[in-house]
Simulated scan of single mutants.
Amino acid sequence: SRVIRDVAEFKTGMTGDMMWMDLFVGPHVSSDCAVVGGAVQWIRHARGLPWTGAMFRHWIINAADDAELTQFLTGWVAQQLPRYTGMINIETIGDHIIEAQIRFADQWCDLNGAGWLDAVVGLYQHGVWFFEDSGRRDGFSVPLFAAHGMVPRHPSREIQNRIRAMPDVASLQITFHETKGSEDHFMPPGGFRLGIVNCWNLQSGFAAREELAKAFPDVEVMIPE
């Protein structure tokens, strides 16, 4: 993909299989919504900091609401899904919706707080939403990528447990199957995601990612500067 800046550049770069779309600019936000009968009962926004090759440096799961975005998405859900009950994840760039899926972001469920998954189960089981959310705080989701190629072995359980026990670390996910080839994993073009550290302090998350990187000595890990 590339940015086309004018008609001349469009004609020069045009190929038979080319498609084009508007270029959206602004924050890239992933918003999870709990919906009952088309009415949003709960919403939380996470902002991704883009890196390169469709990868993200990290995600910030914001405690604070974005009132303007919440109003926009609440209205959109009410109009488009007036009878829907369940979870929906909506991604936006600036003030444009780029995708909406009948699911939630499973990457940082633990950062939504204790009892959140129970509330999701209750939503689907009973059609009601009940979640005590007064204690929400900022969280961070920090990925570790490697160059595409060899699929490594998972770190030992001892190493994983040590990283999970580091200060402010909420969880550690190893995000690949060690018995499958790289072509059998759905990964961004820029890199192969090895794992994700969810945490309550960004610098602590970076430190945990550094420790995780040491567990993969045979691959070329990629860490943003």
Rank of each mutant, 00 (worst) to 15 (best):
V3H: 11
D6V: 00
V7E: 09
A8C: 05
F10C: 01
K11W: 15
T15K: 15
T15D: 15
T15Y: 15
T15P: 11
M18D: 11
M19L: 14
D22V: 09
L23S: 09
F24P: 04
V25C: 15
V29F: 04
D32F: 00
I43W: 09
R44W: 13
A46F: 06
R47D: 06
G48T: 04
L49W: 13
L49K: 11
P50L: 14
G53L: 06
A54R: 13
A54C: 14
H58I: 00
W59K: 00
I61T: 02
I61N: 00
A63D: 10
D65R: 02
D66G: 00
A67L: 12
L69I: 07
F72Y: 10
F72E: 06
W76M: 06
Q79A: 15
Q80W: 11
L81W: 04
I88S: 01
E91M: 00
G94L: 10
D95T: 08
H96S: 15
H96G: 07
I97G: 11
E99G: 08
A100H: 09
A105L: 05
W108S: 10
C109L: 15
D110L: 14
D118Q: 13
A119Y: 01
A119S: 06
V120L: 13
Y124C: 04
W129R: 05
W129M: 09
F130Y: 12
F130K: 04
F130H: 10
S134L: 10
G135V: 11
R136M: 15
F140E: 01
F140S: 01
S141K: 01
S141F: 05
S141I: 02
V142T: 03
L144W: 10
H148E: 07
G149V: 04
P152V: 13
R153F: 12
R153H: 12
E158H: 10
A170C: 07
S171N: 04
L172A: 09
I174L: 14
E178T: 01
E178C: 08
S182E: 11
P188Q: 08
P189S: 09
P189F: 12
L194C: 13
I196D: 03
N201F: 07
Q203V: 10
F206L: 14
F206V: 12
A207V: 05
E211N: 01
L212Y: 03
A213I: 04
F216Q: 00
F216S: 06
F216W: 02
D218F: 03
P224M: 00
P224V: 04
E225K: 09
